[in-house]
Amino acid sequence: MQFSTPVFYIVAALVIIPAVLMVSLKNLIYSAMAMIACFSGVAAVFVTLNAELLAASQLLIYVGAISILILFAIMLTRRRSGAVGIFFHRQSWAALPAAAALAVVLGLVLGSARFNAGSSPKNPATANLSRLLFNQYAFPFELASLVLLAAIVGAVLLARRERRP
C-alpha cells in the first residue's frame, strides 16, 4: 500500500505532539496517557512503512504491556505526603537547547540528500518476515526470550518486599 505524504504528516503529528506533551507535563499520569498516544502513533508509522507485524507487536507490547507497567509503577510510587515537589531540574534550562541542537543537527543530517533512497517499498509481508525470524534469526530469538526470562526473575526479585521473620 502506498501512502501519500500528507498522510505521513498526520501520522508524524500523532507521534510528536504527544511526545512533547509527555515530556513537559507535570502530572505523571497525564504523561503516561500521552505516552500511550505516542506509542499508538508509532504503530501507525509502522503501518505506513508496510510493517504490519511490527505495528501489531508495537501495540501489544508497548501500549498493552509497557505502558501498563509504567502506570503501575507510577501508582505504586505515589508520595504519601502529597507534596508537589520539583519536576524539572535546575539544569533543565540547559537540556532544552541541547536537545534542540541535537534535533537540528539530526534533522540536517538525516534530511540531507545522502539518504536518497529508491521509491519502491521493500518491506516483506508478514509471512516472509516470520520465516526470516525463525530461520535466520532463530538464535537471537531464543536469546531474547532468555533475556526476558532473566528480566522477569530480576524484576520480581528487586521489587519484592523484604519480609523475613
Binding site: 507521534v15 515530556v23 534533522g107
Partner: peptide, 22 residues
C-alpha cells in the same frame, strides 16, 4: 528523509526528557 527526520526529532525530544525530568 521524512521518516528519518521524524525519528531524529523524536529522539531529541526523548533526550530532552531524560536530561530534564527529575
Amino acid at each position: 528523509q521524512h521518516y528519518l527526520v521524524l525519528a531524529g526529532v523524536l529522539f531529541a525530544v526523548g533526550a530532552w526528557g531524560v536530561l530534564a525530568r527529575r
